[in-house]
Design a protein around this nucleic acid. Structure first.
Length: 377
DNA sequence: AAATAGTACAACCGCGGTTGT
DNA sequence: GACAACCGCGGTTGTACTATT
């Protein structure tokens, strides 16, 4: 089969930078049809772009709640830690950075941090390296290459009673013993575990890893089939808004980061003019409600007409979601509600939950320390 | 001011996974 | 089960921008 077959028919597909007119076509398409079905964009809008390109453009530049601009020190720390645990799984890493895309994280890593390698510096700051070594020892599903190694699910019971605290005197020694994830060094993590317990039914508490290239869940109960791969960006907020990350960040400077992510800087990348607002309708579907007054901008090149774009964006209706076999209770995965200013309870689907759980386990292992390391070195 | 090097980022490409027929 | 279509992810490339010489 031809992987490029999706471009079949019609004239040549356009490549290169997107124009405002193309963006408008795509956004309007998503507004009417929801995300997904990217290959119908061309048929329905006449946009001479392949579906793949449309998806990328939407995900990286046009979707709401994108956070652009330099990574904050907190974000950088998180990237480093997660990369140490996950490797080059950019989508997973970016899922823990609200509003950030995998492409951004990837670019960041390739430029800023790989420069350290070229200059002979270690990939991670020394303290992060220590953390990673410890966390790897604690997380049996994350090896040094970022691979999932849980051919046999080995996640500690997240609902287990807190174990004995590790010896307070020997941090390095803990790297050699398999310390449980619930760690009294990080009291908030215990809260997170309890919260996790309250939010999810026990039968859901298994590890389900969907990522290609990884080891899939072995001998685990089948998941209700839902619309397959969830773009990581679409998981992020639902994972964070009600999940463990926010709890972890409570009382921490990163908490402020997270709050900031939720309420500001909702703009689109190279097109800062693409503010999804201007006519605050007050409805849940109005992303502009997340933008502080005064941050509204009219997109110059679009003559201030972007306000209409996201008033009624429909949730994705994908093939697998169009059935009515017990999946009607599954919230649409695309267009998370929090995009539109209605955080509400997390609507994590079963599939998302599997991803979420894995990330929660990892995230719950990350210490809260905010050291004074110079991250620009 | 011009040339060069370095950086940042958008976009493309290929691969692999999932779903539908 | 085989195949086709679709989709998402990660690697890579192209190019605009900025800093330096």
């Amino acid at each position: 089969m031809s992987r490029s077959g999706e471009e079949g028919g019609g004239g040549a597909l356009k490549k290169g930078p997107w124009t405002p007119a193309e963006d408008r076509l795509l956004v309007d398409h998503v507004r009417r049809n929801g995300e997904g079905s990217w290959n119908t964009v061309r048929r329905e809008t006449g946009l001479q772009r392949c579906g793949k390109s449309c998806r990328l453009r939407w995900a990286n530049h046009l979707r709401p709640n994108l956070r652009k601009g330099p990574f904050s020190p907190e974000e950088e720390r998180l990237i480093l830690r997660l990369h140490g645990l996950l490797g080059n799984r950019w989508a997973r890493i970016s899922s823990q950075l609200p509003g950030r895309t995998d492409n951004e994280v990837k670019n960041y890593w390739n430029t800023r941090l790989k420069r350290r390698q070229r200059t002979g510096q270690s990939l991670y700051p020394p303290d992060i390296e220590r953390e990673i070594a410890i966390l790897r020892a604690q997380n049996p599903f994350a090896d040094g290459e970022g691979n999932i190694t849980n051919a046999t699910p080995m996640l500690p019971d997240p609902y287990a009673l807190p174990p004995r605290p590790p010896p307070s005197s020997s941090t390095s020694a803990s790297a050699t013993h398999s310390a449980p994830l619930i760690n009294q060094q990080y009291p908030l993590l215990n809260q997170m575990q309890l919260r996790n317990h309250a939010n999810h039914q026990p039968h859901q508490a298994f590890h389900h890893h969907h990522h290609h290239g990884g080891v899939r869940s072995a001998g685990l109960p089948p998941l209700p089939t839902r619309a397959r791969e969830v773009p990581s960006k679409q998981v992020d907020s639902s994972s964070c808004s009600d999940g463990l990350l926010e709890a972890m960040l409570l009382g921490d400077e990163e908490h402020h980061l997270h709050r900031a992510n939720n309420h500001t800087m909702c703009r689109a990348g190279s097109m800062p003019e693409l503010m999804y607002g201007g006519a605050a309708s007050g409805s849940d579907s109005d992303v502009t409600s997340q933008l502080p007054p005064g941050e509204m901008q009219d997109p110059p090149h679009l003559d201030g007409k972007w306000d209409f774009l996201f008033d009624d964006v429909k949730p994705t209706m994908r093939r697998a979601e169009s059935d009515t076999t017990g999946m009607s209770s599954v919230a649409p995965v695309s267009m998370p509600a929090e995009w539109f200013g209605s955080p509400g309870p997390s609507s994590v689907t079963d599939d998302e939950f599997g991803l979420d759980l894995e990330m929660q386990q990892l995230m719950s292992s990350l210490p809260l320390s905010t050291d004074g390391f110079n991250w620009n070195n």
